[in-house]
Design a protein around this nucleic acid. Structure first.
Lengths: 213, 213
DNA sequence: TTGTGTGAATCCCTTCACAGCG
DNA sequence: CGCTGTGAAGGGATTCACACAA
């Protein structure tokens, strides 16, 4: 599954949608799909579907479409979800607790294997099968448990420090809930979750619609 | 603040960053900023900052830059956060509870005024000052409390129905946590929060880096 | 005939470069 | 001078359209 060029982020987002659609189709008993069908379910166009897939190879049969199970497996490989990823949760506050045992993560193979929090009142508590560790343990947890991904759900002021420590300890990617731009080496991908920004996109759209047209 | 053309979504995201940067600057006691300074804080370019702002008017002084408090106020107006928005939370599960009283929402004027959940065991419980209502109450809550935005944090199978009911009851925008594409009238903006997709973007980036280069 | 894979054309966003104002 | 505001240029992503394989 070699990548030849630079893949746009929008393509990757769409691949996620296609994968979900294929899983739905499989449940519904579908054997094959056309790019047309995938396009409808993913809110895009047939040409876009074919272009997206073409970055990674040829998965369809002309005049026939794509085999559902085959394409699903290819997409799982492309997206890297054909295996289990060990995840550490940094920050056991409101968001952290919502994400721990988040069912959607489990089904995609993202498994939380460690929890860290700086609040002494929380350290030592048991969450399901896991125990909340103090921040000092971060490096050893990452090393010992083979953690590759980190969910960073701490206040903005603590985020940069924890990110740097996690990177130094060898993690490979960060899902960041803190409303700051993390400064990390370019080989460590960061995905920012910014709910305030999304709310602002809503109030912007509503406000402009009212005044503009 | 009239909008002349179609504004790209990327611009709106950047406006949110600029607003945050301006608030930081104000705390630091800055009086004026250049597009250069805003660009550095927002991880973009000076030309991009000026172009983004130019969609909405002329806010700077040539040779001088932008007055921090003035531009901040303009951005608040543009983004529609110069007022309070009443929000209803649909779904009082893990995610719902993390979002209720989410401090970052409060400071931007997004105020949760109603909670709804279909679980009889949850209905009637008190969360802070609010009481969890059954789904039947949705329409009357929206009407009586002047709810304009909805945070939809229910399982996928319930999401479409609740979205339709909320829209019919008059809400104007949806922050959607369910992993489906909601079908709503085009005048109702929807922002999707898809954490699995963001995790997949990470595993994709990590996997490809390993195999590609 | 059907529906993929793909170069070409189009569209839109970003970047450039500079005129113009303070 | 310094820095904004903006038309023009450039680059990337989407859409088009069709050759081709089943």
């Amino acid at each position: 599954m070699p990548v030849t060029r630079r893949i746009p982020a929008s393509t990757i987002r769409r691949l996620s949608h296609y994968l979900r659609s294929l899983e739905d189709l499989e449940r519904e008993g579908g054997e094959t799909v056309s790019s047309e069908e995938l396009a409808i379910r993913g809110q895009t166009t047939a040409a876009q579907v074919r272009k997206d897939l073409s970055h990674f190879g040829s998965f369809g049969k002309r005049g026939l479409g794509y085999k559902v199970d085959e394409l699903r497996e290819c997409l799982r490989q492309i997206l890297g979800v054909d295996r289990v990823w060990n995840v550490a949760l940094i920050g056991a506050g409101r968001i952290g607790s919502a994400l721990y045992e988040y069912p959607a993560f489990e089904t995609r193979g993202y498994r939380c294997v460690a929890i860290v929090d700086s609040d002494p009142a929380k350290v030592g508590r048991q969450w399901g099968e896991l125990c909340i560790h103090p921040p000092e343990d971060l490096e050893s947890l990452i090393a010992d448990l083979g953690v590759e991904l980190v969910i960073l759900a701490v206040p903005a002021r603590a985020a940069q420090v924890m990110a740097e420590r996690a990177v130094a300890a060898g993690i490979k990617g960060i899902l960041n809930f803190a409303p700051i731009r993390l400064k990390v080496p370019s080989h460590v991908p960061v995905e920012d979750v910014n709910l305030v920004m999304q709310m602002e996109a809503l109030s912007f759209a509503i406000t402009q619609r009212g005044s503009g047209a």
